[in-house]
Design a binder for these strands. Sequence first.
DNA 1: AACGCATAAGTAAGAC
DNA 2: GTCTTACTTATGCGTT
Lengths: 92, 92, 92, 92
Amino acid sequence: MTTSTAASQAPAVDASSVAADQLKVFIERIERLEEEKAGLASDIKDVYAEAKGTGFDGKALREIIRLRKQDHAERQEAEAILELYMQALGMV
Amino acid sequence: MTTSTAASQAPAVDASSVAADQLKVFIERIERLEEEKAGLASDIKDVYAEAKGTGFDGKALREIIRLRKQDHAERQEAEAILELYMQALGMV
Amino acid sequence: MTTSTAASQAPAVDASSVAADQLKVFIERIERLEEEKAGLASDIKDVYAEAKGTGFDGKALREIIRLRKQDHAERQEAEAILELYMQALGMV
Amino acid sequence: MTTSTAASQAPAVDASSVAADQLKVFIERIERLEEEKAGLASDIKDVYAEAKGTGFDGKALREIIRLRKQDHAERQEAEAILELYMQALGMV
DNA sequence: AACGCATAAGTAAGAC
DNA sequence: GTCTTACTTATGCGTT
């Protein structure tokens, strides 16, 4: 082995190694996904702007979205608990 | 008109109005996009986890991503700043 | 004990308890500090206004402050990152 | 004049000018104030941590602070309106 | 299980 | 007056 000590906990990362190639691939995958995510964030902003242009209050709109998200989360939690209890009671 | 005064600045939003329908559409569009965004965030998390499983250090990985993002941003910013200073100094 | 069960994980907070007094003290300390912070934010705004009145471009000024802050942060960070990567590469 | 055109809207800022000295002073004042502000932010964080250590819930604590700030703002607003009306009525 | 960090949301100021 | 941009706050995530 040319580039790392035997005790290395991490892959050896020099320019020509397999590890460097792997690293590059991981980074590119992440950056690609981050780009898409940023695109969606931008789309969301556009929808808020459009809604505002139609006369809706952006702040109120955001509040509604927030509340509905809470509701969904609580509903899902409730179902999860129900399922848990059903399992505990042997009701599959 | 049954649900709002003539001078209303915002769309009338009662359950049966056109405005309520529009509101519903906006909310659903936003929620749809938010879902996709959350999905991507989850994908990104998975990639980090996979990289970690391969032996890469997650923290270092995030640092690299951050630095590369900075580099890109700074490159784009450099010209903007130059122009800003030229304006500030009256060099048009 | 009049105001809480023995197993209470949180301080009992009714109007006459020791906990209520503690809570009040914490809140007052925080509010005091927040006030001072707001005062400083206001002072900073004033300095920008004064500089602007002297003929300096506020936007450019803010940019300079931002860049100098970055420089300081980056200098401090540089060592941290170095150490981070060394750890990531198993160089302890 | 050696360093700027006659039409310059901004003070001439070369290394030896009075303007450069002024600029330096403004920047140092701002940076000083920013430092103090950051110090207070840090103090506030410490108080929250201490409160948490005593058993208080940080999130609830922040909520209380937020609500009280709103109350104060509304009270101040009410007084401002009162004063406005008194002035409008010639009650000084 | 808790602590600190990092991202993300919301708010407020400033520019055009 | 609108619009963007910057700051502040808040929540969630990873780590210890």
